[in-house]
Write a protein that binds this DNA or RNA. Structure first.
Lengths: 346, 346
DNA sequence: TTTAACGCCGCAAACGTTTCCGAAAATTTG
DNA sequence: CAAATTTTCGGAAACGTTTGCGGCGTTAAA
């Protein structure tokens, strides 16, 4: 026996309902609710009481329509299911929540095509601002420039474009790479392989440069065959390392561009009978959790993922508040954490 | 020398602008844009052409106001920075994007207080539906019930309430726990410790029950001192295991309620000189990546995190389309993946 | 030729707010 | 007591859409 379809009607407590209930006008209710001028204390009290009792919430869309602000920011990132990016998301989410903003997520899945579609679909007047990290495939940035040109406050983080002038938040990739390479050298490594990221990405470039400069500082000639570029995945690390173990002169250290790749490298080294760190010292860039879980623990330059997210969001709010603000590039300091995977000498 | 403040005005191409430009009325423009009746082919062509040229996007808020639907779903979860939940998020995001929906995220950070605040702040008419997983602390569910009572379509996943009748998506926790415990027994374990989750959580309960029933099946009397309940973190696993290694009769197997806890256990075992798996076999529940990265690789019941997210989202859309749909509970099958950490015999 | 039908279009209401402006009521001032 | 001022309020426009309805001009039917 089916009951006649009962349509659950969404909560209809509007400002008009309150006004009718109290026998006053909607404008008075509105003013009472924002502790504004032009309303007597008694009326205000009555309105507020009833609003609380009825659990009145203003319709955010109606408000947005007239106020031209949405209290929503967009976050566009290449992936979410890695510790690094999910930690960034947490940082963003925390400061946005604190500021009373809602967060809308978009994942490009490392595909420019999808990135473009997302931006196209994303109506500009839905967002007060945008936080973005580009996909690996993103070589050109017109799709971003168009949105920014239309007046959408934007801050890039991690994967930042070179040719757009907005605020940006990045890691100190260069210094981190320099330090960790220097550390390898001090451990006695002389034939250090660099498992690099995509060539065109700024942070990958910076890490490569840090590596090169550290070698130069110690008068070690960089070897072309010791540098290999690919993506950021564990599989990339595994494959590239499998190649590298066949290259002469034989490697004695690996600097991976990120932690997933380092883990791929570790697995490959084990597969081919190399011991870490005695045969090959291994270091990487990464966020915290992974590095402490593998055996041996990974020496890494830790990326302050949470802080990157939080800072980006803060910067975005600054710019929303003050649209004429000068673009600002924040470089988060990097910190070298030495663990077992690189400790040869002993 | 400062230029006079130039206020970047957001894109003002509205339906009205197009109408004026073409010398027709806004209603005609609107109808032309939705391939509706009552507009001549030529007019439609002109409108569409101009709209494309101007990159017209309807203001989603104005549309929402009149249509009473927002094309936004909310996702409330206890944390984002773990592989399990971030994988779920990816699943959600994928099907939502495919369906033309936007996703708004809220993180309770495992705090009921924050959970309640989020729900309170979340205006019901901003969302077409809600996907939710409860925080660890959540014992009562009135705050959810209130929203659902107001007519917000809701689907719970993973951390589901017992006392609310909505659609739910969960893991087959019982069967997974049974299988993995049986596997331990078949490996020769007889004194199996269970590192349990919070007692009141349904999935933790189910896993405990699977463990108990497997023991019973093999006529092994469960020992009270071999069962310990706490949270889900690596630290919890480390601490609990540190306690357990002092308990008599001495353990020979560990079944951890999730992978982070198992890793804590592994670290503790190593610290106290126990070898995995020869002294103590170790198994857990978990999403993929972590288990393959630690040494020895972890035997786990894999949680189909991506699928849980995707399925939940699908179910939510079904319910949005058909509000009178019967609530439905989907139990995702679990799969036991045997790796090194549990292989004693040999 | 008159009437009915139809294709195409514009008007206007509605969605739920905020806010400007003017009016009524209450109060103060001269 | 009249005038001026202040306090409190309601009307109405505006935000950008969608959509029901009525009107017009053209064509088909009677």
């Amino acid at each position: 026996m089916r009951s006649t379809a009962t349509f659950v009607v969404k909560n209809k407590v509007t400002i008009k309902y309150i006004a009718d209930e109290l026998g006053i006008s909607i404008s008075t209710v509105s003013r009472a609710l924002h502790d504004a001028y032009d309303v007597s204390p008694e009326t205000r009290k009555k309105v507020i009481a009833l609003a609380e009792q009825l659990e009145y919430n203003p319709n955010p869309f109606a408000v947005s329509l007239v106020k031209h602000q949405t209290k929503i920011i967009g976050v566009l990132l290449p992936e979410i299911a890695t510790p690094y990016f999910s930690m960034i998301v947490k940082g963003i989410q925390d400061v946005a929540y604190g500021a009373g903003y809602n967060v809308m997520f978009f994942i490009s899945d490392e595909s420019v095509e999808r990135e473009k579609n997302i931006l196209k679909r994303l109506s500009i007047n839905m967002l007060d601002g945008l936080l973005a990290a580009m996909s690996i495939e993103t070589m050109h940035t017109e799709h971003f420039q168009k949105l920014i040109g239309k007046g959408l406050p934007t801050v890039f983080f991690d994967r930042v474009p070179e040719d757009i002038s907005t605020s940006k938040v990045v890691q100190d990739d260069y210094q981190g790479a320099y330090n960790v390479t220097e550390h390898l050298i001090q451990q006695g490594c002389r034939r250090i392989v660099h498992l690099g990221g995509p060539k065109h990405l700024q942070n990958a470039k910076q890490r490569l440069q840090g590596y090169l400069n550290a070698l130069e500082k110690y008068h070690i000639a960089p070897q072309k065959q010791h540098i290999i570029h690919s993506g950021f995945s564990q599989e990339d690390g595994f494959r590239d390392t499998s190649i590298m173990v066949g290259v002469k002169p034989l490697l004695d250290g690996i600097f991976a561009v990120n932690d997933r790749k380092a883990i791929g490298a570790m697995l490959a080294l084990r597969r081919y009978g190399f011991k870490v760190p005695s045969h090959v010292a291994l270091v990487s860039f990464g966020s915290m959790p992974l590095a402490e879980v593998v055996m041996p623990n990974l020496t890494t330059v830790v990326q302050a993922a949470y802080e990157i997210g939080a800072k980006s969001c803060q910067l975005l709010f600054d710019q929303i508040k003050n649209p004429t603000m000068e673009p600002q590039t924040v470089v988060m300091p990097s910190q070298l954490i030495i663990r077992e995977s690189s400790l040869k000498g002993r």
